[in-house]
Nucleic acid binder design. Structure first.
Lengths: 116, 116
DNA sequence: CCGGAATATACTGCAAGAGGAATATGGCGG
DNA sequence: CCGCCATATTCCTCTTGCAGTATATTCCGG
């Protein structure tokens, strides 16, 4: 995995928020919509961008698409993701995302993606 | 310092090489030219890009411009620079840069920038 | 004051990327 | 088989960024 490509993936705020959330565990597009409060097309396109570069993986579950960090995350990627977690710990946007993720978690459970 | 801007600065290979070298200490543009083997205008423009975003600092020494990492490096920046050092440790391009830096070091010494 | 060296700044062409609107796809329940 | 839901893709526009060529600036030595 090219280090420059990693940074290209990290240089958009929406993608940062996505990756930040994925560190907590797999999520569906509908989850991202609720938590990030961004339109579907935006999220979907950024996920496609990340997927094309191997930064996330997808698994279909019925109509839902389950996104997660790659099972075999290359070391450069995990190092940078760890760094990211650290850097945004105090940023309101990211804290808000985490808070909303936890707030919504009950309604995600049973998560539509997990019902197979 | 905005985290997204940091990543924007990191998502070009030339800039990565510049920052990687600066971790070793301050350098003049002429040094970068020798070590990176890239045209002057390219280096100069990337340095301007970094400077405009506060990722490097400049000090004039006669005709030479002395670039360095900012004296008060924000934590997000230093965290990412540390991560960068770690990630590129085994990449030939970056190893080559370091080797050339050290090989040229004797001719940099007395460094034109240091002669004031 | 003049020429040259080191560095910076237009200017141009081009490609990539971001956002939004609309449309397409693919699976599921009835 | 139909319609709906979740998601993806296409099309368009706008902006940013990179590279190169040429030109400007700034300082120095004589």
């Amino acid at each position: 995995m090219d280090i420059v490509q990693i940074y290209e993936c990290l240089c958009d705020r929406t993608r940062l928020r996505i990756l930040h959330l994925l560190a907590q565990g797999p999520l569906c597009v509908c989850h991202f919509q609720s938590v990030l409060r961004e339109p579907q097309v935006k999220i979907s396109k950024h996920l496609a961008y990340l997927r094309a570069r191997g930064m996330v993986e997808v698994e279909r579950r019925g109509t839902w698409m389950m996104y997660s960090l790659p099972a075999k995350t290359p070391p450069e990627l995990s190092a940078n993701l760890a760094c990211l977690q650290d850097c945004v710990r105090d940023e309101p946007v990211f804290r808000g995302d985490l808070a909303r993720l936890r707030k919504y978690a009950p309604t995600f459970d049973p998560c539509p993606c997990a019902k197979s």
